[in-house]
């Protein structure tokens, strides 16, 4: 019991540090990818190939002057970025990061909580993610911030519906709400993306919208709203907002890999009969490789597709994605009833 608690605590600590580390290097990767797409060099001053750039950025953020506007609501102004970061980090609790390790006959699962409603937990955390933005935007007492916050939250609420309904099709196929069971149902290359291409597309678009990433970054559209909900934020509070975006990008990439791309399974590796601990390490590496691909994909899209107009965004969410996801559910249901 004590060993299990100790192991979980260490696991939580490791996931926390890894999320932050990956988020930090995502900022570097984003600049490099953008530079590559625009035929530039990108950051190359700090350290070899500019690898120390995230540290330099962090120091810059910390040493900037901290300004809390006089007319703002002080408590909520500080609470906003904290809530946003908290919800971004909380989502990692149900992600199965790999197969279990085994030491001395005791199994150590690489998942913080294997609850039987894992996928609903993700939906719940995604739906309370709007509070960080709304609180921060309102507490700034600035029209642009409030408008940005309202845009961001109405966008997140709209896309949550289609996201939830695209997940329903997966639940229909797997018959379970537990993320580990969904991942284990995709062994031997039976990835959900081959059975649910439409559902995957809907989920991916919604994940972009949930993360407030381009082409759905209307919340911080500088030409209309200056900086959106974080206009008034400075120093590390702004840093937290920007950083949390990368954390949630990392975790939603991991969730996409788990739901549609077999998670820690890769065809061929399961049949190699590796010893359990080595198989566990390989499975973690497989999941991270998939996750990194999706992080790259997020950046690829950002530097390729221009921003939507607000009415286009709402039209896409309500009039295209939601009907499509309902059709997807009906088709999956019919297939499961009559074919399988």
């Amino acid at each position: 019991m004590l060993v299990a608690i100790l192991f979980k605590t260490i696991l939580i600590g490791i996931i926390f540090l890894v999320s932050l580390g990956i988020a930090a290097y995502s900022t570097y990767a984003e600049r490099k990818v953008a530079a590559f797409m625009q035929d530039r060099v990108g950051p190359d001053r700090a350290g070899p190939f500019g690898l120390l750039q995230p540290i330099a950025d962090g120091v810059k953020m910390f040493t900037k002057e901290e300004i809390i506007p006089n007319a703002s609501d002080r408590i909520l102004f500080i609470l906003g970025p904290c809530v946003f970061m908290l919800t971004a980090l909380m989502m990692s609790a149900v992600v199965p990061w790999g197969k279990s390790f085994e030491f001395g006959g005791v199994e150590f699962s690489l998942q913080v909580a294997d609850i039987n409603i894992g996928i609903l937990y993700i939906m719940a955390i995604a739906s309370i993610g709007v509070y960080g933005i709304m609180i921060g935007g309102w507490a700034s007492n600035n029209k642009y911030s409030l408008l940005g916050a309202i845009r961001a939250s109405s966008q997140m609420i709209s896309y949550e519906l289609a996201m939830g309904m695209s997940i329903v099709a997966i639940i229909l196929m797997t018959g379970s709400l537990s993320l580990r069971e969904i991942v284990d149902g995709q062994m031997h290359g039976h990835w959900n993306v081959f059975y649910q291409p439409l559902g995957f597309l809907i989920f991916l678009i919604c994940a972009f919208a949930e993360a407030n990433r381009a082409p759905f970054d209307l919340a911080e559209c500088e030409t209309e709203l200056i900086g959106g909900y974080h206009t008034e934020f400075s120093s590390m509070k702004l840093g937290l907002y920007l950083f949390a975006e990368y954390v949630s990008m990392f975790i939603s990439s991991a969730v996409i890999s788990c739901l549609y791309f077999g998670g820690y399974h890769f065809p061929g590796i399961d049949s190699l009969d590796l010893p359990q601990n080595i198989a566990a390490i390989v499975s973690v590496a497989v999941l991270f490789a998939k996750t990194f691909f999706f992080i790259f994909f997020f950046m690829w899209i950002r530097w390729t597709i221009p921003r939507f107009r607000y009415d286009q965004l709402m039209k896409l969410g309500w009039q295209i994605l939601i009907p499509l996801s309902i059709i997807n559910i009906m088709a999956t249901g019919a297939w499961m009833t009559f074919v399988k």
Binding site: I117, L120, Y121, M123, A124, S127, I128, V130, Y131, M134, W138, L146, A149, I150, S153, S154, I157, E160
Partner: peptide, 23 residues
Amino acid sequence: FLAIVHIIVYAGAIMVLFLFVVM
């Protein structure tokens, strides 16, 4: 299940709407 649905429906949807209106 009830707990998580409670959070999704009340904290995630209804209260966001309340917050919208109040703000």
